[in-house]
Design a protein around this nucleic acid. Structure first.
Lengths: 205, 205
DNA sequence: TGTACATCAGTGAACGCGCGTTCACTGATGTAC
DNA sequence: TGTACATCAGTGAACGCGCGTTCACTGATGTAC
């Protein structure tokens, strides 16, 4: 059960399987992920999946975790900007750019559903929390007047708004929207939100 | 091929099938829609589907069209409010309420994907256009300074923002968010957006 | 009013395929003596 | 250094099931004469 001890020379099968699944999802989308393609790419037999991992579902979650970590890294510099307005703009922009550059992997984060009752495993839920926290920083700085309770919600709302615009754009319902246009729209959204939030916080500053 | 002539007494099979599909989606979600369940509920044989309709896909689109029309109707009163700020608030609120009351049918609008190359049929695309136009009215009134080109995009962005918040809430990633809270968040979002847009339009009014 | 024939919506068993998962087996590696 | 045995990652054919779609057939309804 423990697999963190041996110093190995080349990637073990488990890693290669996750690599392969990541590649496949990036290439064909979550719905196009097939066990046979994964093992084919990883260079092992079909059944080997079930030695390395419980399930195809777990494989997807492992890939999603990686994506969340990479997304987090992509947002890190932005979240360290000190002026909250600027931080929010760069955060949102970085988010949009990441989504554009990792369309299918990013989509997989939201498309994946576990079978009915079972919840996200903890290790995966944590990745989410970290992300939300990173996004939340600047907003909290911007609206110190709001109680923590409300802010928790509002951070998610802000995230939802930016996410929704990017999501719709990538679905292609904003047909063929080029990168520059999307980034501009996201910027417009956040600018308006920040201006609005400011004004609401200090009505006659 | 023509089916608009006869005055029939009770719903014909085609209608009953769409009814049944609508019921099934509302009950189990798009992914839970099975041909056998639909025909079972409609009270006909499995094969009858293919007399009434080309495909399960078409059946889904018919249901989605109905949902779009109902959504349009739900937004109609709001879009007739004359003051643009108030109109945007009530529109967004009506949208959130509709989504909450029609979770699975509303989700189906965005979950449905056609197989690879084929595009939406025109009758379905039009339903979308009508909706966007309805949402757009107030925003256009609010920002007469922007060129039509930009406004077209911005309407979609506004829609995307509201949509994203509602979407995330219904996914349950905003765990168990009660209706009142969601409506409040949407209101906060739109309020901030409107205030921001105002301010950007007339910097020192 | 009756007979023969055509049409076609509706039937449901059967087809076919995709695909995740299992499981009896193999063979390389490690351990005991 | 050599032999017997245990372990277990890795194998891949086979299983099993869900499910959309087809197709040869039925039987009610309409039309012609």
């Amino acid at each position: 059960m423990n697999d963190t001890s041996k110093p190995e020379s080349k990637p073990d099968l488990r890693t290669r399987l996750i690599d392969a699944a990541e590649f496949e999802i990036a290439e064909k989308g979550l719905a196009g992920l097939k066990a046979r393609d994964v093992t084919g790419r990883a260079g092992c037999a079909l059944g080997a999946i079930y030695n390395a991992v419980a399930d195809l579902d777990e494989l997807v979650q492992r890939v999603n975790s990686r994506t969340l970590v990479r997304l987090g890294a992509a947002l890190a510099p932005a979240s360290e900007t000190s002026a909250p307005e600027a931080a929010m703009l760069t955060l949102a922009d970085a988010y949009a750019v990441f989504a554009l550059n990792n369309r299918r992997l990013w989509s997989a984060l939201f498309e994946h559903r576990l079978p009915e009752g079972v919840g996200m495993p903890d290790w995966h839920r944590q990745d989410h929390e970290v992300l939300i926290a990173r996004i939340g920083g600047p907003l909290i700085a911007l609206r110190p007047d709001l109680p923590a309770e409300v802010l928790r919600l509002r951070v998610r709302t802000l995230f939802g708004a930016v996410h929704g615009v990017v999501h719709l754009a990538l679905q292609g319902r904003l047909v063929g929207l080029p990168e520059a246009a999307l980034r501009q729209e996201v910027a417009a959204l956040v600018t308006a939100l920040v201006a609005g939030a400011r004004q609401l916080a200090e009505p006659e500053a």
